[in-house]
Design a binder for these strands. Sequence first.
DNA 1: CTCGCAATGGTCAATAATGGTCAAATTTAT
DNA 2: ATAAATTTGACCATTATTGACCATTGCGAG
Lengths: 154, 154
Amino acid sequence: MANISELIERYIKNLLQESQGDSVELQRNELAAQFRCVPSQINYVLSTRFNIENGFVVESRRGGGGYIRIVKIPLEQQGDPAVQIYRLVGEEINQSQAENIIKRLAEEELITLREAQIFRAVIDRNSLRLDLPWRDSLRANLLRVMLAAVFRQS
Amino acid sequence: MANISELIERYIKNLLQESQGDSVELQRNELAAQFRCVPSQINYVLSTRFNIENGFVVESRRGGGGYIRIVKIPLEQQGDPAVQIYRLVGEEINQSQAENIIKRLAEEELITLREAQIFRAVIDRNSLRLDLPWRDSLRANLLRVMLAAVFRQS
DNA sequence: CTCGCAATGGTCAATAATGGTCAAATTTAT
DNA sequence: ATAAATTTGACCATTATTGACCATTGCGAG
């Protein structure tokens, strides 16, 4: 466990603790230099430890003045219906299953009516214009990122 | 943010705020001198941040007494905002164009912050997982159906 | 009035400064 | 021995900065 990825992970989580808010901003090259690793290792750490399943969202920008921002999503309790529903989606989902989930979300008032309309528009097979099974996979993906977007606020 | 373009952007937006109206006038060389950059960088900032997707129009004049006028175009002004935006989207759209449009919709309070997050999540290239040019086409399609979903009700 | 120059702004392509992806190689865990 | 996780590096993509060269406008000198 003199494992660089873990060191980087802890370093970033430390930064997050120290920064009053719930996000930190850093530079990939700088961090890589600090830990004497290749820059792409930073991406590895981000994708394995700071992904959405772990409750983080990463935003970044390339080019001059580029940055990587890591945002911690205030993780609700285990029993949170939102989280359960998120898990329900899975890797593939068909339109009617998705509609059921959206209906439930609206009923539980986790999303507004307008938001429900947006969700429905997106997961509609006519919007997706792909053949199965790619369509079901794209739908699951989109539903998951939409849910993440919503749950991300508090 | 050792990023001059961003500083210039904020400076101009500040000017716009302070000037009661919705336009400001400035001189390219002067501004460039103020920020110690080459004059053409001003054009770069204008074309990336004050373009039509972002809701701005730039007028200018060369020669003695030349100037650059930046005008903010509020959406409500010319007819149905939905229709205008719809046109802006077109048959294909890339991520950054789409982000500009979403930013603007939120600024104009035509969509909520949460809705903007949903939109952004959907149009993200990582969510779409398709190669170009199909990705840009799917993105345009999804953006259009989302807009329709939102505007249908108002 | 006309020509020429000074004072502006515009374009475009090269280069710099970042970050991203993917898969092979290596190491560690089961 | 396999499978999983980590480490690396070659190549790619995006955004910003710079500078050489171009275009337009206003103003005087003839």
